[in-house]
Write a protein that binds this DNA or RNA. Sequence first.
DNA 1: AAATTGCTTCAATACTTGTTGAAGTATTGT
DNA 2: ACAATACTTCAACAAGTATTGAAGCAATTT
Lengths: 114, 114
Amino acid sequence: METKTATAIFESLSSGWRLEAFRLLVKKGPEGMVAGDIAAALDLAPSSLSFHLKALTHAGMVSVAQEGRFLRYRANLALMAELIAYLTEECCAGVPGQCAEVAGAKACIDKLAC
Amino acid sequence: METKTATAIFESLSSGWRLEAFRLLVKKGPEGMVAGDIAAALDLAPSSLSFHLKALTHAGMVSVAQEGRFLRYRANLALMAELIAYLTEECCAGVPGQCAEVAGAKACIDKLAC
DNA sequence: AAATTGCTTCAATACTTGTTGAAGTATTGT
DNA sequence: ACAATACTTCAACAAGTATTGAAGCAATTT
């Protein structure tokens, strides 16, 4: 992954609305959610949500599919996985066990849900 | 993890300089790096690096320790692990196998280095 | 003690981002 | 055709962020 791609993703997750929207979509998985349901769940003005969903879409973190007059959004879990891999790349220079020396870091994998 | 904490972290990683600095520190692990070495590695003006390291420190993603007139920075791997756990929480509603249905998402754990 | 080194802080400027409400577009229902 | 629904886009304003160079402070060297 390129630095520019990663910073664009982090920027897209740096707003509370966008992070909450993305986490909602992660939980929904392949089912996704239509824009109106996301707006209702977050209690956010439609125009504001649209602004934030566009930012997430532009960063590639969510995809959109039209369904009649609804727009269904889905989290891009593959990109999320790539991002995590990028962030943790060559952690502790790849020296086995060195990460475990750092308090709590060992719990990294255990806490992952997918 | 609270939303506010997570957005502060993502914001701190949304600049190319900060992301590269953090990734350098992840690779160094417990050894860390002194500010001057980071500046040299990134070819960045000291005042600008200081600004960015302060942002990372404020978000909790790096810690600082004084060593004579040097300041040694270290990545907070435990917080990184917490962030990943937060982002992937209840992925696909916790339904086993559903993540695997999404192209590539299965590779999530495999790609993690720590 | 004076100079040097390593890093930070400050102030000014330029740029970017978020919110609001109104207007616009496309799909569906009557 | 007309109205309603679902969502987006636009423009204006407020607020936050990044860069620069100069000045500051503390630890070390001479």
